[in-house]
Write a protein that binds this DNA or RNA. Sequence first.
DNA 1: CGGTGTGTTGAAAGGTGTCAATGCTAGTGG
DNA 2: CCACTAGCATTGACACCTTTCAACACACCG
Lengths: 249, 249
Amino acid sequence: MGNLAKHNSIVKKFSLLLDLSKKEKNMLLSLQDNCQSIPAKTDLVLEGKEFVNTYIIQDGWAYNYKLLEDGRQQNLNFSIRGDFIGLYATVFNKSENSVRALTDLTVCKVEPDRIIELFGKAPRLAAAICWTAARDGAILGEHITRIGRRTAYERTGHIILELLRRLEAVDLAESDSYEFPLTQEILADTLGLTTVHMNRTLRTLKNDGMISFDGKRIIVNNRSKLREVAGFNPTYLQHKKLPGKIKSL
Amino acid sequence: MGNLAKHNSIVKKFSLLLDLSKKEKNMLLSLQDNCQSIPAKTDLVLEGKEFVNTYIIQDGWAYNYKLLEDGRQQNLNFSIRGDFIGLYATVFNKSENSVRALTDLTVCKVEPDRIIELFGKAPRLAAAICWTAARDGAILGEHITRIGRRTAYERTGHIILELLRRLEAVDLAESDSYEFPLTQEILADTLGLTTVHMNRTLRTLKNDGMISFDGKRIIVNNRSKLREVAGFNPTYLQHKKLPGKIKSL
DNA sequence: CGGTGTGTTGAAAGGTGTCAATGCTAGTGG
DNA sequence: CCACTAGCATTGACACCTTTCAACACACCG
């Protein structure tokens, strides 16, 4: 079990926030007893539809998105290993955006009631889950400034670095490179660009020696340089120890 | 007291979500026993700085924003009567964005510990507060699609309608018009445009008969038409009764 | 082998940004 | 009551980033 816990991504993630007791670890693990595979391009949540379940990603990528009536699409955020999908199902009936599997996915289904139960039994875990939600909010805020106030070039570099950072935190990146399952269309729909311009921007980034691709892997060649030109400041992703007051929850 | 409760915006807002008991109403009211005035342009929260307090707005507008190193600014969201400012101070040390008073403000200062206390004592209020946080998330998501996938014209119409809707919910709008304290610069920094283009877009909206101004009031002349051209769908703002399962929290 | 999805390119149009100047209004101080 | 200032709104001309439209290339797959 100790071994299992060590390799479980939520346990690992939460351990960065607070020192988990054995009991807390077990609770987290037992939450993930109902795993399943989901093929790429499946919608796990549909905007406006009732929530069914919350999921914890074990492997693969998902993204949530919104569709306009005329077909325009805007992707809001990506979810990777250790992230929750549909967390608000715990409290709410409906979702304000859809979630789709970007790659084949391994997820653990968690019935909302079990999270509610957790809130009662393990307030520190509840706080950690809240942290998760708050961090998602911070990512959305950063995404807004990315789209609203940065050029295509900066946006692209910025999100590449964000993903690198997030993937590192769950051991899915090494030596500044990671598996990159995003098509240019999905990236474009994320950054508020057209596919064509996305293509050109990536090309420029490559020509400038900022990034390169090795099959499906992306390599950040000069991380500090890219950070500088993209204006990337990772504080909003930092895992910090939760303040002590949480204990009093 | 009953009268006070009726006119308190948080009480009113939460009443749309669930049927508050007398005791719950009192708890909400007693939360707001420490009011103060804050002049326009004051920063209540600074990005990266420690949170000090959470506030509940009684009157006036605030907005939260991010600054890039080179001076570019991106506003993320507005807060009006009945909204929380710095809610995450309850759980976290630092803020990921700054909050500034747009107008003179009347706020009630709430010490984070009192919210934590509330979570323990009044789970249904806790759920309502979570709803608040989730709605803010939904607004951010909508804002992303607004900036990422809509034209300047659509963006502007869209946010004008969002604000109309939100202000109506707290009795600050009547007959499709409301006090409009936003300068074109702040609007531009919100919608990811330049001041110049913001000005031109507003002009076009006026010329098209969509909106007009009467002093500091904005009037939406043809709401359904504007809804159509701006692609505004207000479901993400809807106050719905919380599902029953909350009670078991 | 012919799809189908994805990536790539060129040329031209168009939405937004940039720069720079002017107008307007409210408030301040003499 | 009149300068004078500060902040905001408004305009024109022009540059440029990004989109649009339309092909074509390439790889994977049944």
